[in-house]
Design a protein around this nucleic acid. Structure first.
Length: 588
RNA sequence: CGGGGUGUAGCUUAGUCUGGUAGAGCGCCUGGUUUGGGACCAGGAGGUCGUAGGUUCGAAUCCUAUCGCCCCGACCA
C-alpha cells in the first residue's frame, strides 16, 4: 500500500507544449515521465511501476517458453562491431564513447560504443561457451536499456534515443529447430501483448539491416504509428507495407507483343511522369516506364517501375547491397547520358552500361506491355517500347509499393492499409552472425556446423506508451488491470477524519490481500481535484470514502471504464472489495 | 541531413509586425472563507525574455551567428 502524499505523482492540468499525441500528453500529465532532452526521459515513480509490471509480464512469458535471462553490458568494445557484419550500417546509429577522463587519447577510433542491440555480444559469448549439440538449443534474453542515435526522436517514448527493450537470441542446431524456437517466441509475444491489454497483430516484415531469412513484426493499430500494415480479412494476409505484395500482376499474364516500331520523339522540358501525362503527349502514367538510379555500395544500379507506381525502398534490400541510396544527378549523367527525367533502359541507349551493378525491373511493368520511356537524351523520349523486345533488364523482382484496394495475392479480395506502431519484432537470422563470429557446434558425427540463430525484440517502453495510446479518454489514461501502476485507488475525501482514514486503511488492506496494488489518496485536496487526478492517472478501480457516506454507512466503488458509481454498505466492505479485485484479476 | 515551426516564471501563454525598460491564467507561499468533479477573497515570492554578438539614446521586439525543442521526410523496438 502506498500513500499519495508519500510518493511523487506530479500531475498537470495542462499539456506541455511539446507533446502532440494523446499518449505523449498523458505520459506527462499523469506524472509518469519527465523529459531530460530529445528522446531522453526520466521515469517517475508511477511510470517506473508500469515499466516494471510490463517487464515482469514479459519475463514470465519468456520463461514460459524456456528462454534464459541474463544481462549484458551497455558499453561494448568497438571491436565487437568492427569485426561484425554490419559496422557500416550500425555505426550510423551508435553512440560512441571516448576514453574517460582527460587521458592521453591514444587511439583515433573510439574504443567503446553504447549498445544499440546485442548480437555482437551474445554471439561471441555463445561461441566460447557452447560447442556441443548436447547444449543446444538455447535462447538467452535480457531486459535493459538500448542506445540508438535515432535520426529523429519522436512522440516521447515512442521513438527515443535511450529506451528499454527486451531482446532475446536463440541458437539452434538446424533450421527445423530454429523455426521451432522462432515459433515459441511468436507464441510468447502473442501472450505478452495480450496480457498487457494490447491488441497487437503479427505481420510479415522486412528484415532490414538485421538481415536474415524472414521475420514478423507485432503491430498495434494506431493512427499515430510509423508503419503501414497491409492486410486482407478474407485471406488473413497481413504484412508491413515495406514487405507487402499484391496480386496486381496475374500469374498467367502473357507478355504483350510489340505494338510498332520504336520511335523517338522530342519532349523538351518534360522531366516528370505527370508532365508527360498531360497534353500534348497524353501518355497515361501506367503506360510509362519510370527509371530510377540508385547507388549500391558505391556502384550505380537501375530500378524500372510503371510510371504510376512508387518504389518501396526497403525492397531493395533483396538485391544484396549493404548500403544503398538515391544517386545524385552528377552521378547519373555520366552513366546514363542524360539527366533525371529523360532516363530509360532501352537496349543501346545507356551511355555506359558497364558501370551498372544491374537493372532491376518490377514485375508490374509487364502490365505496361508497350509504353513510353526516356531516351537517355535530354529532351527526348521513346514510344512503342516493348518490355520483352526493347528493355535491357538484369532481372525482375518486387519493388513497388502496394496500394489499398489492390487484390490480395491469394483471395483476390481488396487489400486494406492501416497505420500501426511496431512494438515487437522476431527475426529468423540463419547463420549470418554465427558464421561471422565462429559460433559453431559439433554434432554427434563429430562434424562442425554454424549455429542457426534467431533474434527477438520487444520495445518495453514503447509498449508502455502504446498501451496509453490505445486506452485513454478525455479524462486521462485507462490502464488495463495487469499493467496499471496501482490497480486500486482508495480516495479519502476527509483525511483529517479518523473514521474515514480508518475505513480507507481497511479497504486498502482488503484489496491488497486480494492481490491488488493499492494507492491511497490521503492528500489535503478538495474532492474535485482528487477525482480529476484519479481519472487522469487511470487506476482501474476507485474506492471513495467520505464523511457524508460514512454517516449513511456506505462507501463508493467505481471502475475507470464505467460512469456508474456503486454505493456499498460498509459492513460488507472487505468482502465486496476482495471479490471485485479477484474478479478483475481473473478477467485480465 | 533536407523542409517547416518555435524558444518570455515550474506549466499554458500575451506582448514581437509598428523598438520606450515584461503582463495574465494555472501552480507555489501566507491569512481567511470554503469542502462530493480541477473553489473564492486578500496579500506575496518567482522572469539575465534560449545564448553570443551587432544596430540604436534605448532591444523580448530589428540584424547576424549559434544552441535547444517540436512537426513533415529517410531509419527503428
Amino acid at each position: 500500500m502506498k500513500y499519495w502524499s508519500q510518493t511523487f505523482i506530479p500531475t498537470l492540468k495542462e499539456s506541455p507544449a511539446d507533446a502532440e499525441i494523446a499518449s505523449h500528453k498523458l505520459l506527462l500529465r499523469a506524472g509518469l515521465v519527465r523529459k531530460l532532452g530529445g528522446g531522453l526521459y526520466t521515469f517517475l515513480p508511477a511510470g517506473l511501476r508500469v515499466m516494471q509490471k510490463i517487464s515482469q509480464i514479459c519475463r514470465e512469458e519468456m520463461d514460459r517458453e524456456g528462454a534464459i535471462e541474463l544481462s549484458m553490458p551497455f558499453i561494448h568494445p568497438v571491436e565487437n562491431w568492427t569485426d561484425g557484419t554490419r559496422w557500416a550500417a550500425a555505426r550510423e546509429i551508435m553512440y560512441r564513447v571516448d576514453h574517460a577522463g582527460a587521458g592521453k587519447g591514444r587511439s583515433k577510433e573510439p574504443e567503446f560504443v553504447l549498445g544499440p542491440t546485442h548480437e555482437e555480444v551474445i554471439t561471441p559469448l555463445v561461441k566460447s561457451e557452447i560447442t556441443s549439440y548436447r547444449d543446444l538449443p538455447k535462447n538467452f534474453y535480457q531486459i535493459g536499456t538500448k542506445f540508438r542515435n535515432e535520426i529523429r526522436p519522436r512522440y516521447g517514448l515512442m521513438r527515443a534515443r535511450e529506451f528499454v527493450m527486451k531482446d532475446a537470441y536463440s541458437f539452434d542446431v538446424n533450421d527445423e529447430s530454429a523455426i521451432a524456437s522462432y515459433n515459441k517466441m511468436k507464441r510468447a509475444y502473442t501472450a505478452f501483448f495480450s496480457r498487457c491489454g494490447l491488441k497487437a497483430i503479427a505481420v510479415e516484415a522486412d528484415t532490414g539491416v538485421m538481415g536474415g531469412s524472414y521475420s514478423h513484426e507485432f503491430m498495434v493499430p494506431a493512427p499515430v504509428g510509423d508503419d503501414d500494415i497491409v492486410y486482407c480479412e478474407e485471406s488473413g494476409y497481413s504484412a508491413n507495407r515495406e514487405k507487402a505484395t499484391s496480386g496486381i500482376v496475374p500469374k498467367d499474364l502473357a507478355d504483350a507483343s510489340p505494338a510498332g516500331a520504336l520511335e523517338e520523339f522530342p519532349t523538351p522540358g518534360i522531366v516528370t511522369i505527370a508532365a508527360l501525362a498531360a497534353a500534348p503527349h497524353n501518355v497515361a502514367p501506367d503506360k510509362q516506364f519510370k527509371t530510377l538510379v540508385y547507388m549500391g555500395d558505391g556502384k550505380p544500379f537501375l530500378v524500372v517501375l510503371r510510371g504510376c507506381d512508387d518504389l518501396e525502398e526497403a525492397k531493395l534490400g533483396a538485391l544484396g547491397f549493404q548500403l544503398w541510396r538515391q544517386a545524385t544527378p552528377e552521378e547519373i549523367e555520366p552513366v546514363m547520358g542524360a539527366k533525371p527525367g529523360s532516363l530509360g533502359t532501352v537496349r543501346g541507349s545507356i551511355k555506359n552500361p558497364a558501370a551498372l551493378a544491374g537493372i532491376f525491373a518490377d514485375h508490374a511493368i509487364r502490365l505496361v506491355g508497350n509504353g513510353t520511356t526516356g531516351a537517355n537524351k535530354d529532351g527526348f523520349h521513346l514510344r512503342n517500347v516493348n518490355v520483352v523486345r526493347d528493355l535491357e533488364l538484369t532481372r525482375f523482382g518486387d519493388f513497388r509499393t502496394v496500394r489499398a484496394g489492390e487484390p490480395d495475392p491469394k483471395s483476390g479480395a481488396p487489400l486494406k492499409i492501416a497505420r500501426a506502431i511496431e512494438v515487437g519484432h522476431v527475426f529468423k537470422l540463419g547463420t549470418k552472425y554465427s558464421e561471422k563470429f565462429g559460433a559453431v557446434y559439433t554434432d554427434d558425427q563429430k562434424q562442425s556446423h554454424p549455429m542457426v540463430m534467431g533474434c527477438y525484440g520487444i520495445g518495453i517502453s514503447r509498449t508502455l506508451q502504446a498501451v496509453i495510446e490505445q486506452s485513454n479518454d478525455a479524462d486521462g489514461i485507462i490502464w488495463p488491470w495487469q499493467v496499471a501502476p496501482w490497480q486500486v485507488l482508495v480516495v479519502n475525501l476527509d483525511p483529517q477524519d479518523a473514521a474515514a482514514t480508518e475505513l480507507c486503511k481497511k479497504l486498502a488492506l482488503a484489496a491488497e490481500s486480494a492481490g491488488a496494488d493499492v494507492l491511497v489518496d490521503d492528500r489535503a485536496e478538495r474532492p474535485g481535484v482528487k477525482f480529476k487526478d484519479a481519472d487522469l492517472i487511470g487506476v482501474p478501480l476507485r474506492l471513495t470514502v467520505g464523511g457524508r457516506g460514512l454517516k449513511e454507512g456506505i462507501f463508493e466503488m467505481k471502475w475507470r471504464t464505467s460512469k456508474d458509481v456503486a454505493k456499498l454498505a460498509i459492513g460488507d466492505a472487505e468482502k465486496l472489495v476482495a471479490e471485485s479485485v479477484r474478479s478483475a484479476a481473473s478477467k485480465a
